[in-house]
Nucleic acid binder design. Structure first.
Length: 209
DNA sequence: CATCTGATCCGCT
DNA sequence: GCGGATCAGATGC
């Protein structure tokens, strides 16, 4: 990995997240390769973030979040869906960016085989569970390096997106008003916004942008 | 379009 | 034992 990529990813998740829009995650498998250009992500900090898996400190599940940047953190959601994060920040500090949606830019036929033949192209990786399924990710991929020549590869965009919007995070029951969701405005592959259940009592932290 | 529900497993209390 | 960083389909405006 080049030094400038490492410099970007070694920052805390809320700073890295908007820069990941337009990056491409590719998974090479014996059944084919699928590449997804990210259009929507969400930042999750560590012990200071009540919505983060790392909020109550390190556990067996979230240990990857505390590791070095540039690896994948995959978890099983609601017993059904595999959701993927890019681990960011310095080693020892929990920080990750959830990959919420993207556009399939290679391997559309492979992705459709996994998601269903009737699924519209723009919906193949719309939503974190769907993105994980399109890439055939499971918890076995948690901890995988994204820059070591393995089957999972994260590559930067050729040109940076013209504009990135930000707003409240989706579906979380705590601190959902923290504006740590970032997306490509107007893009059809961005998932529908669903507000979290309860009102937000946590103060919004200062964003060092 | 907004809101609700069931499916289904695991991590943590 | 409870609830979740979800999704698709149904129901109600």
């Amino acid at each position: 990995m080049s030094p400038d990529l490492l410099a970007i990813l070694a920052q805390p998740a809320p700073l890295v997240a908007p820069h990941l829009i337009g990056w491409t995650l590719t998974h090479h498998t014996p059944h084919g390769s699928v590449a997804i250009e990210l259009t929507e992500v969400e930042a999750y900090a560590g012990e200071s973030d009540p919505a983060s898996h790392a909020w109550r400190g390190p556990t067996a599940r979230n240990s990857v979040m505390f590791g070095p940047a540039g690896r994948l953190y995959v978890y099983l959601s609601h017993g059904l869906h595999h959701c993927a994060n890019v681990v960011t920040g310095p080693e020892g500090e929990a920080s990750a960016v959830l990959l919420r949606a993207g556009r399939v830019v290679a391997g559309v036929d492979v992705a459709r085989r996994r998601r269903g033949e009737q699924v519209a192209r723009h919906s193949l990786a719309r939503g974190p569970g769907n993105l994980g399924q399109a890439l055939a990710l499971t918890r076995q991929h948690s901890g995988a390096h994204l820059f070591d020549g393995g089957p999972l590869v994260l590559s930067p965009p050729s040109r940076t997106p013209a504009a990135v919007s930000s707003g409240p995070r989706v579906g979380v029951s705590r601190a959902h008003d923290w504006p740590w969701r970032y997306w490509l405005p107007g893009d059809p592959t961005v998932s529908a916004y669903r507000r979290g259940k309860t009102a937000d009592t946590q103060p919004v932290p200062h964003l060092p942008l």
